[in-house]
Structures are given as C-alpha cells and as structure tokens.
Design a protein around this nucleic acid. Structure first.
Lengths: 334, 334
DNA sequence: CTGAAAGCGCTTACAG
DNA sequence: CTGAAAGCGCTTACAG
C-alpha cells in the first residue's frame, strides 16, 4: 500500500522542477539532458502520470463510453472485441455499460457515462430517448449509434445496408423456387427490425411474390422459435427469413430438432449478420454478412472525427454486406 | 458545445458557497433549505458533479479494470454481463480491456489500467507475469483472477472445482460403460487446463480405467477439432472429455458433421462450463456446470472487500459445480 | 450548518 | 529550455 508516487517526487529525485517532469511525460519540449534525468528518476520510482489529473486539465479523458445491449448475440461480443482493439490502438479506453433491457435504464447509464467525462459515446443496438438526446447534445459530447438508426436523431450512425440486404435475401429465396415466404422479424420497435422487414417485403413484391406471414421475434430465441413454428405450421411457409443469426439458430433448433422439419428440403432458413457461429458445421447457416470489421472501423473513424470537432461527410453510414450461401436454404437452380 | 457547468455556477445561481454545493452532492451534511436551493439550481443548469475531479481528491475512481481474453467463448460475454450488472449496482464502473492473445500484451494493458487509477483489477482467464505482479502489488491495488489460478500468486482467485469436477466427469464416463477415454485438454499452460486434465486422469484411475490419449486443444476450435479427430481415429476413443464447452462444440461439429461419427452411440462427448449454448437443441451438450452467477458474485464480493482494505477469509475461492446430463454422452445404465 | 482556504496531481501560459 | 504560478473541478478539515 505504498503511497502513490507523483510528479513532485520525480522532480525532487531528478533535481528538476515539477513542470519539467510534466513536460517530458506530456510530450512537450525538454532538453535531452532533462529527458534523461527525469526518465531515470521515474523508472527508479515507478512513476506513471495520473491520467485522471491530466484529464481534468486537458478536458479529454480518452475514455469512450460503450453501451451494449445483447451480449448473448455473438455479433456484439465480436464487435466489442474489435472496438476494444481499434480504440486502444488510438489511445482510447472503454467504459462499458450493458443495458439490461431495451430502452429501460439506458438514460440512467448515459448519465453516469457523462459524469465520467467520456470523450464520446457509442450505443450498440440501443435506442435513446428524446430527453436523453437533448441532454447529450447539451453536454456537447459526440454520440454514435451502432447497428441501429433512429429517425430524426441528431447523432451519427453506422449500419449495414439493411434495406437492400433483405431485398437480396427475398430475391434469393424466390429464385430458390419457394412458394410461401415468412419473416421472423427483429424487434419491430427498432429501426433495424423495421428496415429488414421492409426490404424483405419489397424484394418479394419486386419479384412477383408476397409475404405469407410475419411474426415479431423480438430478438429473442424463445419468441423467434415460436414465431417460426407458427409460420411453418399455420402459414405453411417453406422459406423463412429470420432477421438475425441469433434468432435463426433458435429457429433451426426448433424446426429441425423439435418440430422435425428437414432444412432446407422442406423449409429454407436464411439469417442476417453472419456471426462466426453461422459458419460452424452444425448450423452452416445461409445468411447475409454484416461486415462487422468494416462497421467498427467506420464507427471508430467517425467517432474520432467527431471528437476532433470535425463534421463527417455523412452522418448516416451504411456499409454494404453480401449474401453468404451455405446449406440452410435451397440453392437457386441456374 | 456549451461550456461545462461546474459547482461554481450552481453556487452562484443558488446563492450559496461552492462548498455547500459540493456537500449536497457528496452526501455530507447540509440544511434542508440549502439542499433545496442547490438541487433546484443544479436541475435548472443541468449540473452533474465531475467524477474525475472527485476521484482526484478521494483517491477512489470507482472504476474496476476488467481484462478478458476470449470473448468468443460464450462463458465470458456471459460473465461480463453479470460483472457489469453487479458492479454497477454497487456504484462501480468497468474499464474493459481485451487481451489479444494469452500473456502477450497483458502487462501493457495493466499498466494503462493503473494509469487510470482503477480501484481494482479483475483478470478473467488471463495470466499475469511475475514482473507485473510486483508492479501491481507495489501500486497497492487489489487484483483478482477469475476462472484462472496461478500458483504462488499473491492475488485472490475464484474458480470452479476444476479438480473434482473433472473427476466426476471421468466417473460418469466410466459408469456409462465406455472403454477408451480421451481428453481434449484446455491450454495446458493454464492452471485451469492442468487442473481439469489432472482431475480427469485421477477420476479414471480411481475407477480402474485409464487415459488412452490426450491432446492440447489450446482453447481453440481448430486445435480441438483436430485433437478430437486424432483421439477417435488413431486412439479409437469412445469417450471424450473436452475441457470447455467452446471447444466441445467444435469437437461435435467435427465428429458428427465432418467425420460422420454418431454421438453418443459411437463416441460420447462431455464438455465443461455449461454455457447457455450448451442447452441449445442442436448441441444439447452433456457438460459440467460452472455456476457463473455464483462465481461472479463471489468475485465481486471479494473485490469489494479487498478495496475496503479487508482481508478475505479465503484467498482462493472454489465454487462447486454440477454435472448436467444431456444427450451427447451415453447415460449410465442403473 | 456554512464559507474561505488548502490541496488532489497534473498542464500550460508566462517570464526569464 | 526551464521554473514559478495559476488553475482544472472538486472534497474536506478548519473556523465561526
């Protein structure tokens, strides 16, 4: 429990002023000689600058707040890992908050984030109330929505091409020769959920097909499994678009194991995200890839610009994805 | 980009001293009247105390550093979620670091953690070098190893009963009437990996059986799949203990889908952890439950004690688990 | 109970 | 280049 060693201590040991010590550690100018003396003394004493004290003056904490909702959906731990690496490489650190349920409690979390003087906030798959929006704006701290848009929001956002992606899935399923199309939607209260539902529907119509049924899977395994079962048993669907891989796995579990349906012979299932697990042999899920590497890179780049006070060209960034053909959906003939 | 509002501003608006403002927000004594005036003014101005400035004085940042290695193993996102909830409820916040590979870079990470004056550090599944150990000790900040022990380490640790757990697995497999036992170990450079290997071996011997083969799965899907294949094809094992569920899923993928082996008819597979995914119908993995809820609770409780300067009764906490019988291993007859 | 003052550990003009 | 000094936004003895 040794007392913390401060720049004062180092100054004394090196025989220089405290300002001198500060200068060598903050990268300001200092003579070779001073540099050497200070570094030596610092090493001897095990000195490291107190970042909190520095933040107080510079007004930069080098901390980014990250709010994430669904860590059970593999897309998010994966993204978190990427955020962590990218941000650390840039000298930033992550204060993490997990929102228990959608919406609820998020306002409180962000208040706490603000208290810590974070330089920016990234909300992954979490919506923000209007009241909070104005508070964050008033505080003047940059905020970015990741994998979630919000109409009328003043914040930057990065998503994949939800609309055209689901459009392509519809097209793929039509070309696969299916007859009755069902959609297990993401939570329809979320922009992502809505966009994918809309794109799928439009894609179907564009190819002379139409939706036989749609259920809200609420991004939950249970709801999705139930929804899929109804779509197959009641609506006799032979093609299911499930709005994210996380739910698609549950649908596959339900259909193949519980109901005993052959996939894709009797029913085709397509997901969205292409999380690593989608490639695992037991699922081998046909899906639409959301390139999380590029999404995270874009998010980080935008956040850095915002922190620097720059205005990015586009506030709404959309990263194009790609259909990944695997074995849970019948392949088109030609 | 409005200027930050400080306790000075509130003081001015409320017609009291800055100390008075500080007192109402730090919970020190203040008259009803002052309380009211200050809270009103603060609300009007949107004031919230700057936690960083507070930390500088109190010497408590209310930040816990969390270092986590394998976010692709579902056990960790799950634990992270629990840590987040438990710690936030206690007024703590989490600065998260993901270690890229085992060992490497961890020292650097922890240095950065120290710079942020964290009140404590939790390392999940990450080893710490001797040099770092002394640095952390010198800094006098509490550290706890989660799901990983380290012989001779001065730090607290919480694990499950790795030794007796794997012992029970061996027993279960023997009672299941298997003949040739193989072990896909966790990384044998980790205490957890060693303990489980040892427990399994001892369990086998205790019941008159013995190990036909063991390979290091390195906590990696690829290595584990390869290891399992060798154990089955070369060593003709009909019972496999895989040192964690994450690898067990890869083993199942490899054996059932790639090699075409019937599980459990031809080969039984048992994992370790009981991550949520183990219960998913497509895997339905027989495994040993590491109760992450209780492990996290114990870790948090211990950490709080350490921060408070108390000395916990036990430095090495072992939470007992339980065998979860599912469908990837043959059930004992009686 | 309350205000004036010192101080937490730094950074950053300001002189020299 | 370097030191003395002011100040970041708070908390906390110290008087009154």
């Amino acid at each position: 429990m040794s007392r913390k060693v401060t720049s004062q201590d180092v100054a004394r040991a090196a025989g220089v002023s405290q300002s001198a010590v500060s200068r060598v550690f903050s990268g300001a100018s200092a003579s070779k000689n001073t540099q050497a003396k200070v570094r030596q003394a610092a090493a001897d004493l095990g000195y490291r600058p107190n970042v909190l004290a520095r933040s107080l003056i510079t007004g930069q904490s080098k901390i980014i707040g990250l709010v994430v909702a669904y860590l059970d959906n593999q897309f998010y731990p994966d993204a978190l890992q990427r955020f962590s690496n990218a941000l650390h490489d840039l000298g930033y650190h992550i204060l993490i908050f997990t929102a228990k349920t959608r919406g609820e409690g998020v306002d409180d979390l962000i208040g706490r984030l603000l208290d810590y003087q974070v330089d920016g906030i990234i909300c992954a798959s979490v919506g923000v109330s209007d009241e909070l929006t104005s508070r964050v704006e008033a505080a003047g701290i940059p905020m970015l929505l990741f994998n979630r848009g919000q109409t009328g929001s003043p914040f930057a956002q990065v998503t994949s091409d939800n609309l055209s992606g689901s459009h392509k899935i519809a097209e793929y399923l039509v070309r696969g020769g299916h007859e009755r199309f069902g959609h297990v939607a993401g939570w329809l209260g979320s922009s992502t959920g809505q966009q994918r539902a809309k794109g799928f529907n439009q894609g179907l119509e564009a190819h002379g097909a139409h939706l036989s049924g749609q259920r809200d899977g609420l991004y939950s395994r249970e709801a999705a499994a139930q929804a899929a079962r109804e779509l197959v048993e009641q609506e006799r669907c032979d093609a299911l678009f499930v709005s994210n891989d996380h739910m698609a796995f549950a649908v596959l579990d339900e259909l193949r194991v519980k109901v005993g349906v052959k996939v894709p012979e009797e029913v085709s299932v397509v997901g969205y995200d292409d999380v690593p697990m989608a490639a695992w042999a037991s699922y081998d899920l046909t899906t639409y890839r959301q390139p999380s590497n590029r999404m995270v890179a874009a998010a980080v780049e935008t956040m850095i610009k915002l922190i620097a006070g720059e205005v990015p060209e586009t506030k709404e960034i959309e990263i194009p994805g790609a259909l990944i053909e695997r074995s849970t959906a019948r392949w088109p003939k030609e």
